[in-house]
Amino acid sequence: MAQQSDVANQTLAQAGEQALPAERGALDRSKLVSTPGYYRRAWRRLRKDKIAMVALGLAIFILLFSFGAPVVSMLTGHSFDVGDYSKVLAPVGTPGYPFGTDSNGRDILTRLAYGGRVSMMVSCLTVVFALTAGATIGSVAGYYGGLIDSILMRLVDVIISIPGITLLLLISVWWRPGPVGLSVVIAALGWTGVSRLIRGEVLSLKNRDYIDAARVSGASNARIIFRHIFPNVLSIVTVWVSLALPAYILTEATLSYLGFGVRIPVPSWGNMLNEAKDFYATSWTYVFFPGFAIYLASLAFNLLGNGLRDALDPRLNE
């Protein structure tokens, strides 16, 4: 990377020299070569990482498959909720049912797409909610410090000390939610990790000279947080998102499997697995596919997250 910017600087210098004789002091802007920015360079690094690119492709495929569920339904010619009772637990490769059928004679492939839509929606929304809450609380705690910091971080201590799954079960008993509600519930616990992460980063950033400079020139607290601190936290947040997404896919699946998550008429990968578990002795493919979908999605996002972490941390490469 250092080489590249050297080349760029050279070109810049050449451009300057050529422009000098004609018009002193004014650069010919058409000859300016811009050095690529931080994110462009990160993308270049990511593109060289084969595993991360395969993971990215897989992740995009899973997202398309899930959110394109109605299209999948059109292609297979089956709906996710109406079953054919003459074809219960059909094996893989039955004409018209490439992945077979479930215990109600419904097409597993179609249900995987619809289940994926719910699962991916829950995990994506959870990330959004947890990030909003965690970023706000973490940056407020880190930026203002003092009493606010102590109170908020003790709250984080309390929540972290309760094993997540039991608390999630508790809240889900209280409020049997739909997909959006479920993501609020998971996010109600998920914000703690990212808030600690952001608090730490803000703590180290807020005493830098450029923040003092901004404050001296009269920037408000809100402006400092959003314009000066936020862009610097963005890269760790990106990595957090890509690693939190697979974690939430697993959480949603677990809750729905235990019967505390998305409720049955709406398919999700977790409750499909729950329905399938009673038939493990008769049709192993029925159990295999929903779990495999969860596995693929979580694997793809985890590998992508690892790649992103390497790509966004230039110290590793330069």
Partner: peptide
């Protein structure tokens, strides 16, 4: 290790039951 890192516990358990208890 990469492969096992993302395995859903429930699924792994069910697959093991299918293989070692049923099959």
């Amino acid at each position: 290790s990469t492969a096992f890192f993302s395995v859903p516990t429930i699924w792994l358990g069910l697959l093991l039951i299918i293989l070692f208890s049923v099959k």
